[in-house]
């Protein structure tokens, strides 16, 4: 197992190098650059040359890339072209916010999706099952920017709610933080819940048909043991896979939702970086997100071995 984890972590190296090259090329291809953003209408050839020299943009592309990656290997992700602030600490600050949002969304999604998915599979083709399936389909198919704006509109009209302007950290003021985070978490969670519910239902239906479920019942098992200990645990592998992929996506920040609810998360940071052509910010964010994905997938794969003894990596 330890060897397996080490091997998997080693694959991070080519993945991250590949991602960094791709981002570097894409950033070159999109029109506009950071200097014209900084200078605006006051741009003159002299000022431009001065800034390019200052940011190192006057050097050949290859050299730019290698000087960046060389520093990145030592853990220095450089400074933002725009603010001059070091990128890495800012990513960590933003990540904490995105991670909180992601975890809240997951908890909300699980609270909704797992019980309803299980119930739906047990009461197959009943009214409950039909309602759950329609709700799940809505959750999956309504885009979150639509449901988010509609929800804000509805809440502001009826309860005089407004989206907070200034973000307040979890440890500064728990109550205010929850006020800010719960709504976007609910929106994200409801989308997640839709697909988790569908996966739970279909996976449970598959397992409930198995012989060993009947055998467990034939031993005289109470329904709750049959359903949770045997059926749910056996159907959890595809659910865990799905949830792992979703967490990976959410942890990296959610551009649209963070934008709508003005939450200063990783998604918002990345977006600002892109619009300002702030290369070190974009490169840092994207690499960090890629890293998260790989690590979360690894955690999911390790989790499999705890669920199913047939899976082993040694």
């Amino acid at each position: 197992m330890r060897d397996y984890i080490i091997r998997r972590l080693l694959t991070l190296i080519p993945i991250l190098i590949g991602v960094s090259i791709a981002i570097f090329i894409v950033m070159q291809l999109i029109p506009g650059d950071v200097v014209s953003g900084i200078l605006g209408i006051e741009e003159t050839p002299e000022l431009r040359a001065m800034w390019e020299a200052k940011l190192g943009l006057d050097k050949p592309l290859i050299q730019q890339y290698f000087s960046w990656i060389g520093k990145a290997l030592t853990g220095d992700f450089g400074e933002s072209f725009r603010t001059g602030a070091p990128v890495f600490p800012e990513i960590m600050n933003r990540f904490k916010i995105s991670a909180e949002l992601a975890l809240l969304a997951c908890v909300i999604a699980w609270i909704i999706a797992l019980p309803l998915g299980i119930l739906s599979s047990l009461k197959r083709n009943s009214i409950i099952d039909r309602i759950v399936r329609v709700v799940a389909l809505l959750g999956v198919s309504v885009p979150n920017f639509a449901s988010a704006t509609l929800l804000i509109l509805f809440l502001s009209k009826t309860f005089n709610y407004y989206t907070p302007v200034k973000y307040v950290g979890l440890f500064e003021n728990f109550g205010t933080n929850m006020e800010i985070m719960l709504l976007p978490a609910f929106i994200l969670g409801s989308v997640m819940a839709g697909s988790v519910m569908r996966m739970t239902r279909s996976s449970m239906l598959e397992v409930l048909r198995q012989d060993y479920i009947k055998a467990v019942r034939a031993k005289g098992a109470p329904e709750r043991v049959t359903i949770f200990r045997h059926a749910f645990k056996n159907s959890s592998i595809p659910i865990v896979t799905l949830i792992g992929m979703q967490i990976g996506g959410l942890m990296g920040g959610t551009v649209v939702i963070e934008q709508i609810f003005s939450i200063p998360g990783l998604g918002q940071f990345t977006l600002t970086g892109i619009t300002q052509r702030d290369f070190p910010v974009v490169q840092g964010c994207v690499l960090f997100i890629a890293f998260l994905y790989v690590v979360i997938n690894l955690l999911v794969d390790i989790l499999y071995t705890y669920i199913d003894p047939r899976i082993s990596y040694s």
């Binding site: 198995q210 012989d211 060993y212 055998a215 467990v216 034939a218 669920i307 199913d308 003894p309 047939r310």
Partner: peptide, 15 residues
């Protein structure tokens, strides 16, 4: 008690 046709699938694989 009851026993079934397919012993391979009659035991829960994860316990």
């Amino acid at each position: 008690s009851m026993i079934f046709q397919e012993p391979m699938t009659s035991l829960d694989p994860i316990f």
